[in-house]
Amino acid sequence: MEDLLQPMLNGLLLGGLYAVIAIGMTTMFGIVKLVNLAHGDLMILGSYLSLVLVSWLGFNPFWTLLAVVPVMFFVGFFVQGFLLNRVLGKEMEPPLLVAFGLSIILQNLLLLIFTPDARSLMTDLSIKTIPLGGSVNLPVLYFVDFLIGCAVILVLHLFFKNTYIGRAIRAASDDEIGARLMGINTKNIYAYAMGIAMMTAAVAGVLVGMTFTFYPHTGPQYLIIAFGVMIIGGLGSMKGCLVGGIILAEAQLIGAQFAGPGYQLLIGYLVLLIVLGVRPQGIFGKV
């Protein structure tokens, strides 16, 4: 039991990071019923943007958020406005395939510019721990990830609840034609929504970059994590996102404690498959 305390704590904290990885994709799914297959790659794009600022200007990765988050807003706005909106219609394959194409382009573009080498946004935070008594230590970076993850979800929640654009996004996802009749330009609103989703992906990208190493090809791995969080937490639900993130991360870390660290990813995938097989609508989703 003593041995399990540390992985359980780490899993809880990592869950916060998983939630912020997934929140943008979950939000977009709730609005346009579209799984953005390029979500992971766009997030990694955020990591690389931060890397550029860190290595050129010597900024602390945290400060790069000030630049990366707005840039990613525009990236999202244009991806939705100029690519995905054009193929949004009755059939679901075209937007999926466009997003998939975007994913291929991003991965290979990053590969071309940054080479396949592993990168990271390491700071001195990554090795700091606070002893909590017994053999349990609080990894400071994971804790920061968790706090920022929760903060992002809270801010997003307030945004959707209290602003014109946030409400319009919810209105458009409730009834698209109804929203248009109120004078809401829904295509424009979708572009804003994607911009906002990419702001969260930017935060996730910087945090992931600070916590783990990343390569041009790591995007899909995080897409699958985001997907797992979304499935476990229930489709399009924000609170479910945090819970889903924690469950997935706990399963991975506790599983790895028993089976060995090499199996962390595998266990995550298995949990995802089991949830998909048993409850395709997610644990917290409506039946």
Binding site: Y164, R167, A168, R170, A171, D174, D175, G178, A179, M182, G183, I184
Partner: peptide, 16 residues
Amino acid sequence: IFPRLTVYENLVMGSY
């Protein structure tokens, strides 16, 4: 109407 918005929020959307 927007089912998952409150009555007040529905009205707010009218003044978008």
